[in-house]
Design a protein around this nucleic acid. Sequence first.
DNA 1: TGTACATCAGTGAACGCGCGTTCACTGATGTAC
DNA 2: TGTACATCAGTGAACGCGCGTTCACTGATGTAC
Lengths: 196, 196
Amino acid sequence: VKVTREKAAEHRAAIVTAAGRLFRERGFEGVGVAEIMRAAGLTHGGFYGHFASKDALAAEACGQTLAESLKLLETRFSEFEGDFGRYFATYLSERHRDDRERGCPMAAHASEVVRQSGAVQAEFSAGLDRFIEALAGHLPAGHEPGERRHRAVAIVAALVGGLALARATAASAPELSAEILASVRTRLTDLADLEA
Amino acid sequence: VKVTREKAAEHRAAIVTAAGRLFRERGFEGVGVAEIMRAAGLTHGGFYGHFASKDALAAEACGQTLAESLKLLETRFSEFEGDFGRYFATYLSERHRDDRERGCPMAAHASEVVRQSGAVQAEFSAGLDRFIEALAGHLPAGHEPGERRHRAVAIVAALVGGLALARATAASAPELSAEILASVRTRLTDLADLEA
DNA sequence: TGTACATCAGTGAACGCGCGTTCACTGATGTAC
DNA sequence: TGTACATCAGTGAACGCGCGTTCACTGATGTAC
């Protein structure tokens, strides 16, 4: 059943969006092509008319979700008028922890990207670099050149590690999970203030 | 072919050790029972004489690798005479980054534990809590009670996040990967000094 | 603008493959005498 | 200590299943006249 070129483009976009959500929730290896197509309202056979492989979709979905995270960072920082403490509190919240499918793709994929194809790794690296750069831009100016970038790297590592660990422990050790969110939040706000 | 009770116990241990390595290198979903048994020098059919399921093995392997990490932390801190800066430098080294199969299980599994069974999550949470507690014990005493634990949580989050991100970017953005290791290392040493 | 037809987005059956798990079998172990 | 046999750790074929991918087909689209 042929459809309008416009509809076909919408279908393609729906596949990428559905993949972005499902991959974040269940991991790249935990979701099949058929399920992604079903989530996009299509049947699995048409998949290869849009993408060369599951892997190519994974790379594209990864790139899109990372781009969304970047946009969200900018939105939040302008909402919060540069108050990074509030950004950290949102990132390290129970709401974000419990909403993997719409949450940060870096935390969702941190430890599995290394096992993915070069295309996925490249998208991830590029997105991560842009994210770090954007965060650095919102930090108060430091003494040495590059000091903000330096801190931004450490902050992103702690955000991603903290969220991933809070998720890993949420079901079996809820107090530990809450403690991780709270402790990282506090320490990060200190770390972002450029005094040391 | 029946074997000695002693040999059977050795086989069981070999399976857990092989699983610990393979799971860290390729993820829980990236390795099959047959491959683990082959790595342990056995055939796949005997697996269910030792374990109730692949999942039960995953939980046990997770518990064992986390216990090893804890032991390693103690060993390193006594070697380094309490110099946490040197411990961080070892953890956030290119050698550790490139040796996933023998490396930190928290960094290897951070983002996939949440998709595993309750048994795996429970082992992970328990191991993580012990690791945090042990690290806190090696930090210089803080002003308030609980301050060391508080910092230990943030440090572990940054270590795990930093290593996972350095691995994710190692192949496609080697300079970024090296930058992550270096930046987190520096910031963490600052964070461990209790002055703020 | 209206008709005729080539194009091609989407369908659903089918493919080979590897997965976790089961089971009848083998033969050395370890126990009973 | 020596023999007879029940036990059971390990083997390898087989199971059903879901995976990524292919393909002949369908029928609406969009173009050529």
